[in-house]
Design a protein around this nucleic acid. Structure first.
Lengths: 157, 157
DNA sequence: CCGGCATTGTTGCGTGACATAACGATCGCT
DNA sequence: AGCGATCGTTATGTCACGCAACAATGCCGG
């Protein structure tokens, strides 16, 4: 047995932090965030706007509030984000048919191609980042993470 | 086989987003972040400062820069964070012995108890959040996430 | 020994992703 | 008709970053 403080280098000296799932989740998430930037950041597309495009594509005509809810984004913050996407020509605001307060969101053709291009480059980057994962490990990972997401708690009201 | 768009409710209609590991990582990380707030947020302790306390406890006398590096925090941002911790009486700045530019960080007794209390409440909360995970699944999860962290890329310089 | 260069902490500023509170317009229900 | 809930909006604040420039100090080659 050697002295305990000999080699702190390998997996760092994080202390109790190293045993907490939350910390590792945070770091891993930031790794993917940086990679997102390398993949599509050059086009000025950020994570949240990309997520919004994806949701709208999956449910054309979705209400602004519903889109935000699916992504855990507050209505107040959606406004600015949708403004951006409209000004960028990726999204059209349309009046909802049955509710004059609401706004229905649809992708423009440009928005659709932007989403497709970004998705292609993004999956490519993810494959690279997860190169040493087997398909089974990758599914396992997504499965475990989804179970965590399911435990999300409402903000107490 | 039913129509594909029948029930978007259950696991949401996220579109391509649902297949991307990065997105799920982000959401799961935010679930833990909220839980962190519920666990120790009342004491005004945030994730990053807590992480710093943990690193200092693991390596007393560590340089400010080295502590930041272990956590992926830029030196510029460490200044404010350490200021906070010093003002809160959790950390002492000491002059490094061998380098008059550097600063050696140590926990105060108050900092140590704060760290211990937070750690206790935190692991408690994590156990709750991961209640339906077996020990094996939990280890599996941490293992997979750590492999992602290892793929972190330097900021190009 | 001394002049250039890297490193340490620091300051200032910008940004992205949130939160919270208050408001007008509209809807639904009684 | 009236009242509360809901939808989008505006304003404002916070947290966790990022980058650029700087003084003080350390290191090293000539």
């Amino acid at each position: 047995m050697q002295d305990a403080e000999v080699e702190p280098g390998r997996h760092d000296a994080l202390g109790v932090l190293d045993g907490l799932v939350g910390y590792h989740l945070r770091r891993a998430s930031s790794v993917f965030a940086s990679d997102f930037g390398r993949a599509v950041g050059g086009d000025g597309l950020r994570q949240v706007p990309f997520a919004i495009l994806s949701v709208i594509a999956a449910s054309p005509g979705i209400r602004q509030g519903a889109a935000g809810e699916a992504l855990g984004i507050k209505r107040a913050n959606m406004v600015v984000l949708i403004n951006e996407l409209v000004e960028a020509g990726h999204v059209d605001r349309r009046a909802a048919e049955d509710d004059r307060r609401a706004i229905a969101l649809v992708l423009t053709p440009k928005g659709r191609t932007t989403l497709e291009n970004a998705t292609a480059r993004l999956t490519e980057h993810e494959d690279e980042l997860l190169a040493d994962f087997t398909a089974g490990e990758r599914d396992m990972l997504i499965g475990l993470i989804r179970r965590i997401e399911a435990r999300e708690q409402p903000p107490a009201d």
